[in-house]
């Protein structure tokens, strides 16, 4: 009877919500970040987003037609993958990159395994990691300086993280610019406020569990504060660390992916903390300036193990009774 102990893999929802309704919530929540990216990086941003989304939707439809499965493009999951991948690209990349990245994300990371719910890594992040390994120069150099509505400077611009790491010179932008999104970075990661609006909407709608983003950002804050400054403890620039890079975008929109994150509350907290720890490891001592996407991918890999370790304890667990006894 071991089968009883196996918790069915997500997605599964307690509410009567349908998959498309839920996915539509996520699309809505991404809109502020989409608008912000267009505001700061102009038509180029819009072109990348549209390319990425259409490539994702077309790939899904074509693959499902080819293998004679039900075409699921109406559940918006491919749209989300497309938007998220675009949000993770530098604004200066050539348009064929989001197209290839989305196709990879949909076909190889998701559809080959049977479609939505069967993938074990977040498709958008797999697409990003693939592009990163395939064309690293584009993915790490095609930054643009932000400017309102297309006033984008074509010259390459250093991201705050690269400055923090000492990889490139330049001054850090002010806190307000960081919050608003007026800084170099990937399309959708720069505007913290826009991401927070979407994130809070998702938490309010109970689409995502706040444990993952809070655990993730909190861990990064603490660890960068402690270890952030080489040769000294407790002096790191933690505020800048949490505001820069893709941390907020990743914490709210990608680490929380139902399919690839643990199903239990405790497991989700673990997921957040693990993501945070790996992010800091890569940011401070790794070969890349940013570690958010790799950290989420790596935690995706251990999600089944987390579910296995955390879940069985809940078997026969009657509410809070045992907890009280233990205390």
């Amino acid at each position: 009877m071991t089968e009883r102990l196996v918790v069915s893999p997500s997605p599964h929802w307690k509410t009567g919500k349908t998959v498309p309704a839920l996915m539509l919530d996520v699309v809505m929540a991404l809109m502020p970040a989409v608008v912000a990216s267009v505001v700061f990086f102009g038509w180029k941003a819009l072109a990348i987003i549209l390319t990425s989304v259409s490539s994702a939707v077309i790939s899904e439809a074509v693959y499902e037609k080819a293998v004679k499965r039900e075409v699921t493009i109406k559940d918006y999951s491919a749209v989300i993958t497309g938007i998220l991948l675009a949000m993770n690209m530098p604004p200066g990349v050539p348009l064929w990159m989001p197209a290839i990245g989305s196709a990879f994300a949909i076909v190889i990371a998701k559809q080959l395994f049977g479609g939505l719910g069967c993938n074990f890594v977040n498709p958008a992040l797999a697409g990003r990691a693939f592009l990163m390994a395939a064309w690293p120069l584009h993915m790490t150099r095609d930054w643009l300086a932000p400017g309102f509505f297309g006033g984008v400077d074509a010259a390459a611009s250093a991201t705050p993280l690269a400055v923090l790491k000492g990889a490139s010179g330049g001054a850090l932008p002010g806190i307000w610019d960081m919050l608003l999104g007026n800084r170099a970075g990937c399309l959708g990661e720069t505007s913290i406020i826009a991401i927070l609006i979407g994130g809070i909407y998702l938490i309010w709608k109970e689409v995502i569990d706040p444990r993952i983003p809070l655990g993730f950002i909190g861990t990064v804050f603490v660890l960068t504060w402690v270890f952030g400054k080489p040769g000294a403890f407790f002096q790191g620039n933690a505020v800048y660390h949490i505001l820069s890079g893709g941390l907020f975008l990743g914490a709210f929109f990608m680490a929380t992916d139902y399919v690839t994150s643990p199903v239990t509350a405790k497991g989700r907290l673990l997921m957040g903390i693990g993501c945070g720890a790996i992010t800091v490891l890569i940011r401070l001592w790794g070969g890349y300036p940013e570690g958010v996407s790799y950290s989420i991918l790596l935690m995706n890999l251990v999600t089944p193990l987390i579910d296995r370790v955390v879940v069985p304890r809940y078997y026969g667990w009657k509410g809070e009774a045992r907890k009280e006894k233990a205390l």
Partner: peptide, 22 residues
């Protein structure tokens, strides 16, 4: 075209052979 360096790395190798087999 712009060569995809990933094909020479382990991930590219695994995925390439996997797809070929598929």
């Amino acid at each position: 075209f712009e060569p995809a360096a990933v094909m020479l790395t382990p991930p590219g190798g695994f995925i390439c052979l996997g797809l070929l087999m598929a």
